[in-house]
Every structure is written in structure tokens, then in C-alpha cells.
């Protein structure tokens, strides 16, 4: 056992030294061409002024589309592994009151982050994470549906991001642009539309992933507003 461990430590130290050397070399060595200049230079054409959002939703839109597809694949895998886990008991009055404060605030903050993503740090993923967190809070405080809509609507919500994204790309292709090459005039609104759909989709997916299985349709009678609905 001791020999094996020291062997692993030795190997890891070697790998670490190599990585550190490569990192150092890349940092100090020669200033090759980097994408930063190119990306920052073209941000004004992208329809948003936050460079990270511009890269995510415009220059590297394929990445983001496929990332939404990864989320979709993950939730499909989770659903196919069986029914959801059992929920918790309803919360006591203190936690219940706190939840009824926190969840609307989370939804409001998600909307703010979605809008502010155009010109400052923020965007669809942060907003979607907040929506997902709202769902998790609801679920932890005993709301069995985690604020999610009934299953047919939930399916639509989860697919919405990929759907809108792909449809936008195809529509732009039909108009003679490239796939997901936004015309500069309408880029802002297209990006905002895609981000809104992506936010709803990400929020629904994260909250649904927290259920750890496919929702049981029979118990969707106590539907309450909130959670991942706008």
C-alpha cells in the first residue's frame, strides 16, 4: 500500500511540475496571437456590450447551444433512471415564511441578472442558476413539485432553450445568413430572446435535476405559482 501511494505521489508531482512549467511558459514566454484582442475589438458589433455575453451568445454560440443540449441530455438521463426521490415534510412556520420571501426575491434577481447580462456580468446561466435555486428552496421546504409546472409543460420548458436557439439559427439561415450569424441590427433582441428561453430552460432543468428522477404525474394537483415560471 505504501509503495503504491508513494508511486502515485511521485507521478502526480511529475505531472504537476510539467503543468506548472507549461503554464509558466505560456504566461511569461512569447506573446503569441490571442483571441482577446479580436474578441474585444468586435464586441460593438455583437449587439451587447458585455464581452463575456458577446462571446457566449454571439461569437461562440455553437458552444452555448451544445451546452444547453448537454443539460437536456443530463435531465433525460436522470428521468430515465427512475421515478423521483421522496420529498420532505412541509416546513414549519418560520421556514415557510422565509421561503415565501426568498423565492420571489430569487425570481426577481434572476430577471435582473438576465437583463443586466447585456452590459455587465450576468446573463442566462446566472439567472437560470437562481431560478433553479428557487426551485430547490421550494422543494426543501416541502413543496413537492419544487415549483415546477405539471409534466407536459415541464417537458416544453426544459426543451425551450434548445428549441428557440435552433429555430433562431435555422430562421437566420433561411434569411440568407449563416447558422446563428445575427444581423447587427437585430442582434440584441435575438440574443435577449435566446437568453430568456435559455434562462427558463436552465432553471427548470436544474430544479428538475434536484428531484433525482422523473416527476410522478399524479401529485401535480397542488400546483402553485412561482418556481421556474416567469
Amino acid at each position: 500500500m505504501g509503495v503504491r501511494h508513494s508511486l502515485i505521489i511521485g507521478l502526480l508531482a511529475l505531472i504537476g511540475a510539467t503543468l506548472a512549467w507549461v503554464y509558466w511558459d505560456a504566461l511569461i514566454g512569447h506573446a503569441g496571437t490571442r483571441l482577446a484582442g479580436l474578441a474585444l475589438e468586435r464586441v460593438p458589433e455583437s449587439g451587447v456590450s458585455n464581452p463575456v455575453t458577446a462571446v457566449l451568445l454571439n461569437f461562440r454560440a455553437y458552444d452555448t447551444l451544445l451546452e444547453l443540449a448537454v443539460l437536456l441530455a443530463a435531465i433525460l438521463g436522470i428521468w430515465s433512471s427512475g421515478p423521483e426521490a421522496r420529498g420532505f415534510l412541509p416546513a414549519g412556520p418560520v421556514l415557510g415564511a422565509l421561503t415565501s420571501w426568498v423565492v420571489p426575491l430569487l425570481i426577481l434577481a434572476a430577471g435582473y441578472l438576465l437583463w443586466v447580462g447585456g452590459h455587465a456580468p450576468g446573463g442566462a446561466f446566472q439567472a437560470g442558476a437562481l431560478l433553479g435555486a428557487a426551485g430547490v428552496v421550494l422543494r426543501l421546504s416541502g413543496e413537492p413539485s419544487a415549483g415546477l409546472p405539471p409534466l407536459p409543460w415541464l417537458r416544453v420548458g426544459i426543451g425551450l432553450g434548445v428549441l428557440i436557439f435552433t429555430l433562431t439559427g435555422l430562421a437566420l439561415m433561411a434569411l440568407g445568413q449563416g447558422f446563428l450569424t445575427y444581423p447587427a441590427a437585430s442582434a440584441k433582441w435575438l440574443i435577449l430572446m435566446i437568453e430568456t428561453a435559455a434562462t427558463l430552460s436552465i432553471g427548470a432543468t436544474l430544479a428538475a435535476a434536484y428531484l433525482a428522477g422523473e416527476p410522478v404525474p399524479a401529485r401535480s394537483t397542488t400546483q402553485q405559482p412561482g418556481g421556474t415560471r416567469p
Binding site: 483571441l35 482577446a36 474578441a39 464581452p51 462571446v55 458552444d63 452555448t64 446573463g123 446561466f125
Partner: peptide, 12 residues
């Protein structure tokens, strides 16, 4: 300004 491309990659 920091390079936005790695930031976007990390977010993904």
C-alpha cells in the same frame, strides 16, 4: 480588460 474567451469557456 480580461480575456473574455476563457471566461465564457469556464461558464460553459
Amino acid at each position: 480588460a480580461p480575456d473574455p474567451v476563457p471566461h465564457a469557456l469556464v461558464l460553459t
